[in-house]
């Protein structure tokens, strides 16, 4: 490559160093949070223990006692997993039909679905509170599962559609010749072929559900409160509890950040609706 030839010795060293420095700066807040989670609350605010301290696991051991962590985590897992499954059950057939039997309306339907995503949540806050309280659904798992599904459904359909579109139609036609019905096509051909796409879509949907912080905060009090609600409720610990707050925060985001590493590529496709390749 001619461009490489242009590089001087200086830029060969300075360039990677600069890239590493930027990456470390961006990662630093997460690192600092994890680091603080291993300090006692008293040590966490003392400058002399900034980087050298005696690590302790007591913040993690006392998470249940201090914050009732597992109750919130359980709610997060229940709502995010159920919402992801429900979204996929609704979205896979829809995207399948759109990709393999497109009509003139398909494009418009897809655009319309996306436009529901752009409705500001705050605009319908009170009707949601009003309806769910009237129906006795306020602060229930069912409600949060439904809301999380609805807000993610457009993106999930969209992502699946872009994956399914790339599968050659002939294969499905061949399946028809072999006498497969629609369910057979989905089970025998579509799911095996698009498995990677479906899995990463599910992963991304799960991450979005887990991190959601508007409806989960406004439509719950205790029974269905998720980790977002737990953290939001401890917004100002006045410095007394930095250690334990870091531990519970690390426990809330750690697994998701690691999952996120595995679906970077899909993120681009999912969030730009296939418009950047």
């Amino acid at each position: 490559m001619a461009i490489v030839a242009q590089h001087t010795k200086f830029s060969k060293i300075a360039w990677p160093v600069l890239a590493w420095v930027v990456a470390l700066i961006f990662f630093f807040p997460i690192f600092y949070m994890v680091l603080t989670s291993f300090k006692t609350d008293a040590d966490a605010v003392k400058p002399e223990f900034l980087f050298s301290f005696t690590p302790t696991l007591e913040n993690y051991a006392n998470m249940t006692e201090n914050y009732d962590y597992w109750r919130f985590a359980r709610n997060s897992v229940i709502t995010a997993v159920s919402a992801t499954i429900f979204t996929l059950v609704v979205a896979v057939p829809c995207a399948y039909a759109m990709a393999f039997n497109p009509t003139r309306a398909t494009k418009d339907i897809l655009m319309w679905m996306l436009s529901t995503k752009m409705l500001p949540a705050a605009a319908v806050l009170y009707p949601m509170i009003f309806m769910t309280k009237a129906a006795g659904l306020y602060d229930t798992h069912f409600l949060i599962i439904m809301v999380l599904s609805l807000i993610n459904l457009p993106i999930v359909i969209w992502m699946l559609f872009t994956y399914f579109k790339d599968i050659p139609k002939d294969i499905i036609e061949a399946g028809k010749m072999d006498g497969l019905n629609t369910w057979g096509e989905v089970r025998e051909i579509l799911i095996p072929l698009a498995w990677g796409g479906i899995a990463s879509t599910a992963l991304l949907c799960f991450i979005f559900c887990w991190n959601e912080a508007y409806w989960t905060v406004r439509l719950t009090t205790t029974d269905a409160a998720t980790l977002s609600k737990l953290i939001e409720g401890n917004r100002a610990p006045e410095g007394l509890f930095f250690g334990r707050l870091s531990a519970v925060s690390t426990a809330a985001v750690g697994p998701i950040v690691v999952l996120g590493w595995f679906c970077q590529k899909q993120l681009v496709q999912g969030l730009t609706f296939g418009a950047v390749k």
Partner: peptide
Amino acid sequence: SPFFVMPAVNAVLWINM
């Protein structure tokens, strides 16, 4: 990595720690 941190944790982490 920062993109996957939940917004509530992001805010609590920055404003406090």
